[in-house]
Design a protein around this nucleic acid. Sequence first.
DNA 1: AATTTTTTCTGACTTTAGTCAGGTAAATTC
DNA 2: GAATTTACCTGACTAAAGTCAGAAAAAATT
Lengths: 291, 291
Amino acid sequence: MLDNISRFRRLSRAVTTQSGALDTSFLGLGRPLGSARVLNAIGHGKTDVSDLREYLELDSGLMSRLLRGLEAEGLITVESDGNDARRRVAQLTPAGRDAFHQYESLSNSAAEKVLTRYKDQDSLLAAMDLIATVLGRDHIEIAPVDPEDPRIAYCVNQFYDEITSILGITFDPHASGNPEADYLRPPKGIFLLATSDGLPIGCCGLKGQGTQLGEVKRLWLSSAARGLGLGKRLMDEIEDHARKLGMTTLQLDTNGRLHAALGLYRNNGWIEIDRYNDNPYAEHFFEKQLT
Amino acid sequence: MLDNISRFRRLSRAVTTQSGALDTSFLGLGRPLGSARVLNAIGHGKTDVSDLREYLELDSGLMSRLLRGLEAEGLITVESDGNDARRRVAQLTPAGRDAFHQYESLSNSAAEKVLTRYKDQDSLLAAMDLIATVLGRDHIEIAPVDPEDPRIAYCVNQFYDEITSILGITFDPHASGNPEADYLRPPKGIFLLATSDGLPIGCCGLKGQGTQLGEVKRLWLSSAARGLGLGKRLMDEIEDHARKLGMTTLQLDTNGRLHAALGLYRNNGWIEIDRYNDNPYAEHFFEKQLT
DNA sequence: AATTTTTTCTGACTTTAGTCAGGTAAATTC
DNA sequence: GAATTTACCTGACTAAAGTCAGAAAAAATT
């Protein structure tokens, strides 16, 4: 009925109206919105003044004045950076932390109000993850993390849940072994996590034994992250790390019903080979020579 | 990983950042945001000054000054309303229409950019519809429309598509008859359409023959609108209209696989009765006495 | 060691947004 | 038909946001 573009604009209006109402309630704390934004950004960990300026897109003069204002209110302290005395770093004082938490609880209760009024929360949250990830696709961050990081546990559990439901079997994660962790962290291997504004949306592990042969394990993308080219980005980074670790050949196994994964491997230089392990869930085996 | 509330706030940030960028590009047209908002609202059909004030939540003094500004730019004219000379009505001049279209094309290209960069547009749009509808649930409008209105055709087609996929059969809409329209519009019956910010999200027809017996037809809710209590709202309004049309008994038929619909009828005073027609797709028949 | 660049700050602005107390004319109510 | 209400306007404000030129100090470059 409405064309696609109108449907997108309808979403923008709905969210903008929502945050307009939140801004109004922020004003109830008696501080102009500019100062509130700076205080919130500091509370969320943007402590470097130059980061703050970039994040909030504020003129340096204006930024400086807002910081002076918050200092005068006793909410923050601003000190010079030890490494580079030109740069300055802001910190919340205890009073600042209080004020920050007031803003947080306003934001949280506004969010809660929307969420609790809808029955099927899971699909609502999935829809929000999808949109936020698509809108923030230019800000997806990929970074190495420890294979025992709780965010990896979250990703891997999601991965197992999906495999279980796609393959229609009861998949026992512990059977395939957690004691692998040592092979998935430096100096032998690596584990990459992709996040979008804090939400883990994908991961990929590289298992090594200190030899020239590596194995790619646990490539997973959240449903919100599909169709963004993130799979290829993760694999490319894994290959870069593999080269740095001195590997020349990578292998992986997968199941035939994971169509997207199969396509990704076939289109990116992976060659199908014979079975090289006894993983009962694996049906396809691939190898790639690193050049 | 992130809790539900953080996931909602992540969506807000993503959309707000997006519209912040749009606001910045609006400023490129050399007009302050306040004036731009007024011009856009007028372009979108909010021509009454009092409507404008309410919609944009602006003080009457500020509103007046912004209108004077746009008038001075030659973008709008403001005249008194014929029916009530206190009220004033704004209209775009040709130059105003040009300026409005510039803003529109900025908005549209921003929206298009996001949409075209994602592969699975249908699920993205469905996610946007869901969220916009949930956020805008307090602004859902229900109004009588002609049964041959194109928006009703859209709803009814969606309805048939769903029935087809749920029942796993090829359902022929024309078999059940378009010539019903006369029985679905005043003075015999009525057709209600529910919209959320312009998007049709539900409908319900009341078919009458000029007697005390009426039949409820084509109750449909878009997937975005489920879980909001809209089904009950539509049925309540249909019953009100039925009473005004002098009906005392309502009937309807439905299929057993439409679980949500069955639940709605059973919880709202409908009593299951014997088959009263030969509709091959119907399995359950209900009746309700209006008091 | 001199020059350039980077980072932040201050002062002196302008623009935009928003508030509030009347005032006028038309419509509504009593 | 007098009193009240409504819709909009004007003038006189204040507050907030944003701009710009220049200055000072530290770091980086030459």
